[in-house]
């Protein structure tokens, strides 16, 4: 079902974790649909992404696309990171099954959401960046019920 690269990034995900006091954090997706991605960015004064970490709740493709997305934006400038599209993530993974393409969209949105957070905190505007579409807080009332 999955390419070797997807399986590799799923089995050995790169950059799993959190960044304390991150420059920007973005969470996208919805637990109801079964996918949530959170991306942490550490951006220096020159606007270069020094570090990037992720946490993902989701299927194999969701984990692999998060892992690949973090690899692709690490070391890049903000403008370069803006060019990491879902297509770029998919190509880097040697493709995804059609039903999993939405996972790569989620990865793109997660990067944008983290950059949006960064821009908001620093009062800057990033060219081409729009307010993230997905929002984890949709349907929050249902989340994390304990039993």
């Amino acid at each position: 079902m999955y390419s070797e690269k997807v399986m590799d990034h799923f089995q050995n995900p790169r950059n799993v974790g959190e960044i304390e006091n991150a420059s920007g954090v973005g969470t996208v997706g919805n637990a109801k649909c079964g996918d949530i991605m959170r991306i942490y960015l550490d951006i220096d004064d020159q606007g270069v992404i020094r570090d990037c970490k992720f946490k993902t709740f989701g299927c194999g493709a969701a984990v692999a696309t998060s892992s690949m997305a973090t690899e692709l934006v690490k070391g890049k400038t903000i403008q370069e990171a803006m060019e990491v599209t879902n297509k770029a993530v998919m190509e880097a993974l040697d493709g995804l099954p059609p039903v999993k393409v939405h996972c790569s969209l989620l990865a793109e949105e997660a990067i944008h959401a983290a950059l949006w957070d960064y821009a908001g905190k620093h009062g800057i505007k990033i060219e081409g960046l729009e307010k993230p579409k997905s929002d984890i807080h949709e349907g929050e009332e249902d989340e994390q019920e304990e039993y």
């Binding site: 969470t27 991605m37 959170r38 946490k55 993902t56 709740f57 984890i136 989340e143």
Partner: peptide, 13 residues
């Protein structure tokens, strides 16, 4: 769970 943002939020809460 160590990879899950839902678990991270739960633990923090």
């Amino acid at each position: 769970r160590n990879m899950s943002p839902l678990y991270e939020d739960f633990v923090k809460k």
